[in-house]
Nucleic acid binder design. Structure first.
Lengths: 186, 186
DNA sequence: GTCTATAGGGCGATAGAC
DNA sequence: GTCTATCGCCCTATAGAC
């Protein structure tokens, strides 16, 4: 592992705090306390909070994309890959590490961070659209369904947090998958 | 109008700022500046930020529920009421005034505010579940579809903000409504 | 009820020794 | 590269006059 340099420990600590509290609510001070490095080191590697945020959010998005691709990029039939992605176990009460950031003005006010979020969802939408196209749907319908599938996950996280009940996300996924299945079992 | 008392102006200003920036990122100072009242007045009516937040978030939830019920409570057929609710015009780029708060730790760490969010979604889920039941679905399936419908809206808001494109919400709704319709037009 | 003034503390960032 | 010390600002909240 290369996670024991000061820089890596800072990024890793920032990722954890950003996921738990958001970017705006996390102070550089909190990051350096959690990482165990000194104040000077933080500002040596990341002159401003913006720089730290870009590094940490970028790392989180890379990891989330890699994880998503593991279920979406197999060679099973399209519909199975889709359902595997939708039903993948998730920490519903924690919320989506990426999606939650859209409610954080400190993120949305920063063009660099906005671009990172944008790239994440554009990529996922592209892959999901291709999957729906493989099932024989025309392109525009496939694109709408891809938006719906992604919205189910993101909205399921919101419901789970609001209701403090992880099953709210599972229920939303079941409701959506049930609609997908009805074509095959009418 | 009764919105020209100091108290009402404070609540109204807080609602606007909370919707735009979240609760944690909005200072009582910002609220009193936006409302035009003096500092002493704020702390006279709302001794702590918590008290102000409960009043403002409560008001926002009441207004949002009333607006939702206007489309859900008509006497048109169940499926029409549902689609009318899903397709209602929304300020997608602003995000859901209520749903966005689930990403705000200042809200989730406050039991009173959590309860207000919970009540909002429980109420909407109840009404949506009843609508799906009216279409002849068994109770547990109706409940899952209600979760899915609400997740489409909440997730659509997240996608719209992440992509900076209001049509992402519309696309998610189209994708979902298309699946609902396929039973009728197979 | 509303005002001005201020307290005590955390914020983001910088200085400068080692 | 990493440390400790410190700056100036804004935060939430309180004090006390009017």
């Amino acid at each position: 592992m290369s996670t024991d340099t000061a820089r890596d420990r800072l990024v890793s600590a920032a990722q954890g705090l950003f996921a738990a509290q958001g970017v705006g609510a996390t102070s550089p001070r909190a990051v350096l306390t959690a990482s165990g490095v000194g104040q000077g080191s933080l500002y040596h590697h990341f002159p401003t909070k913006h720089d730290l945020a870009v590094a940490a959010v970028g790392a989180t998005v890379d990891q989330a994309l890699a994880q998503a691709m593991r279920t979406l990029d197999s060679n099973s039939p399209a519909i199975e890959r889709l359902v595997a992605y939708l039903e993948r176990p998730r920490d519903a009460l924690a919320g989506c590490k990426v999606g939650r950031l859209t409610a954080d003005e400190a993120v949305m006010d920063d063009e660099g961070l906005r671009d990172v979020l944008d790239a994440y969802f554009v990529r996922l939408l592209g892959v999901l659209t291709d999957i729906f196209r493989e099932t024989g749907l025309p392109g525009d319908v496939a694109r709408d369904r891809a938006h719906a599938a992604l919205a189910i996950i993101q909205g399921g996280y919101v419901l789970a947090r609001a209701l403090q009940d992880p099953d709210a996300l599972s229920a939303a996924v079941r409701g959506f998958v049930g609609l997908l299945d009805q074509k095959e079992h009418p």
